[in-house]
Amino acid sequence: MRLSQFTLGQRFLFLAAFFLASGAASAAGAGNYEFLAAPQTDLNRVFRLDKATGEVGACQYGLKEGSSIGVTLCYPPGEGAKAGTFSEYALVASRHTGEGGVFRVDLRSGMMSICFVLNESAVVCTPQAK
């Protein structure tokens, strides 16, 4: 059937349903990341988590010699921080003001690991444990 064979009201309902479905698909993809600052009070680092895969990265502000603006320094996922089993992950900060890392928790299994920047080169996470 062609769209022109429907009444004006039916066409409107069809188009409305199409746009609502398109918006729902976009909304499902939105909000897939969570961000959390490291609890260390003298560190301006923010961790990024893909809530579906558990992948963790981090960025921080850095000074650039000869520039008043500075740069964003980002650390890619390294050992243990790369995408893993599809689940539902979250980040949790400890209340320890000297802690530069964060906890990655699997909300479905209860497993946890600690993620931190190693040697200013990549984010690494410990093996998951309960």
Rank of each mutant, 00 (worst) to 15 (best):
L73Y: 01
C74Q: 11
C74T: 10
Y75P: 03
Y75K: 08
Y75I: 10
P77Y: 01
P77F: 01
P77E: 06
P77T: 03
P77S: 15
G78I: 04
G78M: 02
G78A: 06
E79S: 13
G80P: 10
G80A: 06
G80R: 10
G80H: 09
G80N: 07
A81F: 10
A81S: 13
K82Q: 15
K82R: 15
K82V: 13
K82T: 13
A83E: 11
A83V: 05
G84N: 10
T85F: 09
T85A: 14
T85Q: 15
T85Y: 07
T85S: 13
F86Y: 09
F86A: 14
F86S: 13
F86W: 06
S87E: 08
S87Q: 09
S87W: 11
E88Q: 13
E88M: 08
Y89Q: 06
Y89N: 03
A90I: 05
A90F: 02
A90M: 12
A90N: 08
L91Y: 05
L91S: 03
V92Y: 12
V92I: 15
V92A: 12
A93W: 02
A93H: 01
S94M: 03
R95V: 03
R95A: 11
R95S: 14
R95E: 13
H96Q: 13
T97C: 00
T97P: 11
T97K: 13
T97D: 12
G98P: 00
G98R: 12
G98N: 11
G98T: 08
E99F: 03
E99P: 00
G100A: 14
G100D: 12
G100C: 01
V102P: 01
V102T: 01
V102L: 05
F103D: 04
